[in-house]
């Protein structure tokens, strides 16, 4: 079959994640997060909020939900991030803390250079969420 050329602004994967974002936190009231993090600034046009649930025993991320204020690339980046940290039984917190924005960009099939910061912000929000989780654990002890 002839490959149809798309005229979309970003890659096909970004498009899929933008139009059908995965793991959006639609219902915050009924969501018990173990850790919550925010990154970005409305003045710059990007704010991301990431929530995680952690398996106490394995220290792996069981669930990740998010909300993003931002452009198409920002929304797709957070969506992809949430997929990456929860797939294959969940990412360990240690690995998630060291997740590189480049890895998100790669999985998205690339982002325009100008939009690299979108993936950085998602990662920053995730880090905040993990650190929030650690803080809460400490308090429990």
């Amino acid at each position: 079959m002839k490959k149809t050329k798309t005229n979309w602004l970003y890659s096909q994967i970004v498009k899929e994640h933008f139009l059908n974002p995965k793991n959006v936190l639609w219902d915050e009231k009924n969501y018990q997060a173990d850790g919550k993090g925010m990154a970005g600034n409305p003045i710059c046009g990007d704010v991301m909020m990431v929530c995680i649930k952690v398996d106490l025993k394995t220290q792996k991320i069981k669930d990740c939900k998010w909300r993003t204020y931002g452009c198409g690339a920002a929304i797709a980046s957070t969506s992809m991030l949430s997929v990456m940290v929860t797939e294959k039984g969940g990412m360990t917190l240690k690995k998630a803390l060291n997740l590189k924005p480049q890895e998100i960009i790669k999985r998205l099939g690339g982002l325009p250079v100008l939009k690299f910061h979108c993936s950085v912000l998602g990662q920053a929000a995730l880090k905040e969420a993990i650190n929030d989780y650690f803080k809460k654990q400490k308090r429990k002890k």
């Binding site: 139009l19 990007d46 204020y69 920002a74 929304i75």
Partner: peptide, 14 residues
């Protein structure tokens, strides 16, 4: 308020 224009434009394009 509360949303960003590029995502709005891309959604409407759909």
């Amino acid at each position: 308020a509360g949303i960003e224009g590029e995502s709005l434009v891309l959604k409407l394009d759909q």
